[in-house]
Design a protein around this nucleic acid. Structure first.
Lengths: 233, 233
DNA sequence: GTACCGCCGTAAGAGATCCGTAAGGGTTCG
DNA sequence: CGAACCCTTACGGATCTCTTACGGCGGTAC
């Protein structure tokens, strides 16, 4: 998480660099408005902290400049306590306004609040692919085929859960017990036969050759394993 | 734009009702924490203003209750000026914290700042189209037909809410649970049948062939999915 | 080599669950 | 009072889940 701190007071910047750094933030600084804008462009910070009344470019102008192209959360920190200043900054596009002096705890909490709702954009690996099959975990869809011949595959909830457990542990053995307890609950650790059934269905729907499984492999006596492309042969 | 104001001080509420109303906001009020939660569920406000220290349910608890199922911007207004109170509220999920007394201009600016940020979900495409239907998220209207034969479609608030949730996640599965909690509140995660009802209504109003849904597709055992034009096949 | 036995894959069908639809009662509001 | 909206209930049909049964394969004992 990267924060751009723009202020013309070197002491203030030094204090923030220490405090924010201790919280695990990466800190980038700027001494004036023009530098703040160029740093925002080159560094792509996750949050911007701006002082009003900086040289070369006023804080408000920096806010306006940023908002022309960026949605980054902007927190204005200023010594000006007047309501008019706050209204101007907020209406220019700032997301929050804190007056100096302030409690560091509060500032940190406000930064957390600002960054919180951006988080969901960070999706790890929404899709996995093997063979001509693509699995989209966020959309809960599976499609199959190449190019224009791509078609979506219908999976039942149980089939989906099993596929999920296997594909999210690529290459690893997933024991029958583990599958049974995670799909059917803790009281079904004994196989009564339905696991084989659902594996057969999944293979029928996803394997290029269901009779000779290449990706959804069974490990006799133990469980099943998802073998990704280019692993093991 | 609808605002829920929760405070146990009748005078405060009256003042806000007048001021916010003059700004064009629709104002909904609550006297205590429990009422705030139930109003949030039934009214679907665009912003929530909360007092700390309300009867029956503390403001912090209301914040936590809301955050369990809603992304609505929350602004806490409180007489408590301590940094610890602010940190607690913000970390519980509040988006901003203002101490009484405050300048009304500042409050309005902060509300504008909060509501401005919600837009990005719909900002990518303020309107969505599928088939001969056009959905305008900003105006909350739906129209249907081609060329001169275009006519607006009347949707009830609940229908609109469901359509919104589906269309804003194109291609993604929206679980029954997710729909139920986001439309009817956190205690209605069990289907008693009304979801099916509203989906039928939406299809009747929007699908070219309601009996064979093309855009509002059901995923048996899991939920529903909006399939945009030219996807999935 | 052969018979036995456990494990796996396949198929078909019964049972349970879920979905779409229709009809009707309750509430609010003009 | 009527209109609009929300919710409940009920039922036929589609879908999903689970049971049962049978055949193949490999390992093991004799």
């Amino acid at each position: 998480m990267k924060i751009l701190v723009a202020d013309d007071d070197p002491q203030f910047i030094r204090a923030l660099r220490i405090t924010l750094g201790a919280q695990g933030y990466e800190v980038v600084t700027a001494d004036d408005g023009a530098e703040a804008l160029s740093k925002a462009i080159s560094e792509h910070p996750d949050v911007v902290m701006l002082d009003l009344g900086m040289p070369r470019l006023d804080g408000i102008e920096v806010v306006e400049g940023l908002r022309g192209w960026s949605q980054v959360p902007i927190l204005v920190v200023s010594g000006r306590t007047g309501a008019a200043d706050k209204v101007d900054a907020l209406d220019a596009g700032a997301d929050d306004y804190v007056t100096k002096p302030f409690a560091m705890d509060e500032l940190l909490a406000r930064i957390r609040a600002l960054t919180r709702r951006v988080v969901p954009t960070a999706a790890d690996q929404p899709t996995a692919t093997f063979g001509d099959v693509a699995v989209d975990f966020s959309a809960k869809t599976v499609s199959r085929g190449t190019g224009a011949a791509r078609a979506s595959v219908r999976l039942t909830p149980t089939e989906w859960r099993i596929l999920e457990l296997l594909v999210q542990n690529p290459g690893a053995l997933v024991t029958r017990e583990s599958l049974l307890t995670q799909v059917w609950g803790p009281h079904h650790s004994r196989d009564t036969g339905y696991l084989r059934l659902y594996l057969a269905q999944l293979r029928k729907k996803l394997e290029p050759e269901p009779a000779a499984p290449r990706y959804l492999v069974t490990v006799s006596g133990m469980g099943y394993r998802f073998v990704p492309d280019g692993a093991g042969a």
